[in-house]
Amino acid sequence: MPYDAILSETVTISGHNGDNLEAYLSRPLDATLRGGVVLIHHIPGYDRQTKEMARRFATEGYIALVPNLYHREAPGQSPDDAAATARNLGGVPDERLVGDVKGAADYIKNLSNSNQKVGVIGHCSGGRQTFLAACSLPLQAAVDCYGAFVVKSPPEGAPFTFTSLIHLTPQLSCPLLGLFGKEDSFPSPEEIEELDAELTRLGKEHEFHSYEGAGHAFFAADRPSYRPEAAVDGWGKIFTFFAKHLS
């Protein structure tokens, strides 16, 4: 019987500008060399659901690390309060996000059982930030789950500093898996088509799947947006993709 154990714990990593950040690490406990996954939490924050995903990646054989992107503004606050504080302050600056993901990737690579391959995944706002990280850092795989504002900028008047990322597409450093809902408006099917075409034009390796009957946040198992068929199929595609690129 194979040894079957994971360890999940809060650790401190060095993020953008060397800032100390809280992060959630989940990893298999054997000595086998493993690929790593930086899991970017969604706008609702560094929450229970995101930590559950990290543990799932660990049970599938990956070193998973979730940096708390709101740690600076809201140390010690509950995830929902921290998310509200961060929203009130305009969200996470793009430059800082890239630095924090780099810090998380470096932390993984410094672990004794890292195989030096690191992927990134995020949902919702984390999907956009996944694309941003994959265009800004040398990574081995990226999974964008319904990230909005990759192709289009936020609506007029929204007090957020970020813009679209389509101009960064030539810098995409790794294969990209995109999982989307056909009934989503942010991002819309038209935006996905545009991104797909741009990636194809630039010869960037990518694989997009858009699910019928699914809108935004179809992976969120405790929300009304959950769509089990899309979510189960999507999880399968994520693990197939990471097995190919992070092994």
Partner: peptide
């Protein structure tokens, strides 16, 4: 969808 629409008063 995430609207991101936020007003502060």
């Amino acid at each position: 969808m995430c609207t991101y629409r936020t007003e502060i008063i």
